[in-house]
């Protein structure tokens, strides 16, 4: 069984090409879990509902978890809009760099 940290580490390889930061440091990944059979679930959001890369980002997250986390057999991505993302969810480093 994989851990939440392992899944977050895998997803941190996925970057938003417009903003240039990875999804974890942007605070877009809300939660992750994995059962004993290796079925992983990632709960995430996007910075806007109108994101034209919506499905592609979901696909990248799925591929990253499948590729980088040992023992994972399937990945389900749950895209949610509550709570709505805002910049306070991003890491301090991201916030600082965006404001520069």
């Amino acid at each position: 069984m994989c851990t939440k940290e392992e899944i977050f580490k895998a997803v941190s390889t996925v970057k938003d090409p417009e903003i240039g930061f990875n999804l974890v440091e942007l605070g877009l990944i809300y939660d992750a879990s994995c059962d004993e059979e290796g079925n992983a679930v990632v709960t995430m959001t996007l910075s806007t509902k109108a994101c034209p890369l919506h499905q592609m980002i979901v696909q990248w997250v799925e591929e990253a978890v499948m590729r980088d986390v040992e023992g994972v057999k399937s990945v389900h991505i749950d895209v949610v809009w509550e709570p709505q993302w805002d910049i306070t969810m991003a890491s301090d480093d991201v916030r600082e760099k965006l404001r520069m």
Binding site: K15, P17, E18, G20, P52, L53, M56, E63
Partner: peptide, 20 residues
């Protein structure tokens, strides 16, 4: 965005791609 989407998005995870 459109050029990146067509030309570089299939390469994500496989090789280094430019940011927009």
């Amino acid at each position: 965005f459109l050029v990146w989407y067509e030309r570089f998005s299939p390469l994500v995870g496989k090789e280094k791609v430019p940011m927009l």
